[in-house]
């Protein structure tokens, strides 16, 4: 790998730009493919370039072409990290946030109660003290974002959910019992959230693993987020 190409790759990652390093397995030549540009030692033909960009969009690395083909490309996709937005700088969040960091998520904690969302409780984590609907609107959840509400307080959870549910977020979950969830759905429906959006809501949040402690609940939440991302989440009863 040529050093200038490596530096360019690192710069793209720092800027959270999706990029693929494409290696011609025959010649060893390499080129970077961006969503809207190509930079490097060679330019793949139109058909292969389209295949590379599909892999870039799907966050999938691998080979293009079989062993007997004259051109065989290895495509290594570097997608920006998945994001997790946690609403509620509560006890469970103190377990969930570092766990999600280990799993590769870029985590943001939203809580207008500045006594909760402190750097002491969440060292090295992006903290937002805006009201959750404003915060969520500014953070603009995309298809690589998961949103989890943990405050147990409708004043904070509901505005976050009203903003998150219609977004492209691949996962939206809310802490709270079944009864809490029923009441929440009634409120959100009254506020104009439609049934289709409500059906997207994972609540009570997390896989059913019998979690009891804050850390165990964090494991169940993170497991459900990952399972949803991988398309293997079990159907909810």
């Amino acid at each position: 790998m040529k050093r200038p190409l490596l530096d360019r790759l690192l710069a793209a990652r720092a800027a959270r730009t999706p990029v693929a390093m494409v290696t011609d397995m025959g010649t060893g030549q390499q080129t970077l493919v961006f969503p809207d540009a190509v930079h490097g030692a060679f330019a793949p033909d139109a058909e292969r370039l389209a295949a590379v960009r599909t892999m870039l969009a799907e966050d999938r690395s691998g080979l293009i072409g079989d062993e007997d083909e004259d051109v065989r490309l290895f495509v290594n996709v570097f997608a920006p990290p998945l994001r997790l937005i946690v609403v509620g700088a509560v006890h469970i969040a103190q377990s969930l946030v570092p766990m999600a960091g280990l799993a590769g998520f870029a985590v943001t904690v939203v809580d207008p109660r500045s006594a909760f969302a402190t750097p002491e409780r969440f060292p090295g984590v992006a903290l937002v003290h805006d009201w959750p609907d404003d915060a969520l609107a500014a953070l603009a959840p995309d298809s690589r974002t998961a949103v989890v509400t943990l405050t147990h307080d409708p004043k904070l959870d509901d505005p976050a959910l009203k903003t998150a549910l219609p977004s492209a977020a691949f996962y939206v979950g809310a802490l709270g019992s079944r009864r809490t969830h029923t009441l929440r759905c009634e409120r959100l429906r009254t506020d104009g959230v439609n049934d289709e959006a409500l059906a997207r809501l994972h609540a009570p949040v997390g896989l059913r693993i019998g979690a009891v402690t804050g850390a165990e609940i964090a494991v169940s939440i993170l497991a459900e987020v990952i399972a949803t991302r991988r398309g293997t989440a079990p159907a909810r009863p």
Partner: peptide, 21 residues
């Protein structure tokens, strides 16, 4: 691919670049 951060493994490519530098 993820960025390095608190509690995470050092990033492979940026480490490679540092070593090379």
């Amino acid at each position: 691919m993820v960025e390095s951060g608190p509690g995470m493994d050092p990033d492979v490519l940026s480490t490679a670049a540092d070593w090379h530098a």
